[in-house]
């Protein structure tokens, strides 16, 4: 399979849209937990993380709308694009499954987000730099909270170890997508918008592998598996997520809420 070549967005817009869609789609997934967590305390924690991500999505999509210059606001972007115009990492759209998979995913993703936000603090796009300054604190907390859980669950009981290892085995292949080289990334990096995501691979592994080891988990070997969410070619799961998320805006076009 070759890298899909979607409708070109300006590199800058593409870059911001990817950030925004990651936050949007994962925030949506996390919000599904509300009222169903293993303990009330985690209901509160997951709720906060989901709210952080939705907040990031709002800022980023508002910014993307301005860059696009067609008068679309956060909601038009969040609710009225077609599936192939979402640019989130496939990892973010995968179903929550159990608490173990949710925590492993959060840990893998938040660790990546931390690295991104750190670099984006120095973005030439001052709006993006400001968003990074706010979001990095949130991402650090998410990475800490989820990382602690990965250790608890990996090391805990035989059952929890097995479930957490299965979650890691399932999710790990999707992390390759984080670092796939893309032309728009290179262009955005050249323009000082932000790092090419491919540059972050070594730092990300250095951040996640020690925690996975502490959790007594086996880090899977890389396989030929590829996913393409950030290019607009998604898993089957995104369509269902969108049909639910977009329901109101699609059913009542143009209405104010």
């Amino acid at each position: 399979m070759t890298t899909p070549n979607p409708a070109p967005l300006a590199a800058h817009l593409e870059y911001v849209t990817r950030l925004g869609d990651n936050a949007l789609i994962l925030g949506q997934r996390m919000s599904e937990w509300c009222g169903h967590a293993p303990v009330l305390e985690e209901d509160m924690a997951l709720g906060n993380m989901s709210l952080d991500l939705i907040g990031q999505a709002r800022m980023l999509l508002t910014h993307a709308g301005k860059l696009e210059g067609q008068g679309r606001d956060e909601d038009q972007l969040a609710f009225l694009r077609t599936e192939m115009n979402y640019r989130n990492l496939t990892l973010c759209e995968l179903p929550n499954a159990d608490f173990g998979r949710t925590m492993v995913r959060n840990f893998l993703f938040a660790s990546f987000q931390v690295l991104l936000w750190e670099r984006l603090l120095a973005s030439h796009d001052s709006e993006l730099a400001a968003i990074a300054a706010k979001s990095i604190k949130e991402a650090r907390y998410h990475a800490q909270h989820a990382g602690d859980w990965v250790v608890r669950l990996g090391d805990g009981t035989a059952e929890s170890h097995e479930r957490t290892q299965a979650a890691l085995d399932y999710l790990w292949p999707y992390t390759a997508e984080f670092f796939v080289v893309t032309p728009s990334d290179e262009a955005a990096a050249a323009a000082g918008i932000g790092p090419a995501w491919s540059e972050l691979e070594a730092a990300w592994e250095a951040a996640v592998v020690p925690v996975l080891n502490e959790a007594t988990l086996t880090v899977p070997a890389r396989t030929p598996f590829k996913s393409w969410g950030k290019f607009g070619r998604h898993s089957e799961h995104l369509g269902h997520l969108l049909s639910e998320m977009q329901y109101m805006q699609r059913t009542y076009p143009g209405a104010q809420w």
Binding site: S31, E32, G35, L40, G47, S50, L61, Y247, A255
Partner: peptide, 25 residues
Amino acid sequence: ITRAPTLKRKAILLAKVQDEGGHGL
């Protein structure tokens, strides 16, 4: 929550429902 019509309403509703969890706690 997953069907809220705007991101602002989604955030408000999620915060509200989360508050109820806090009240229970």
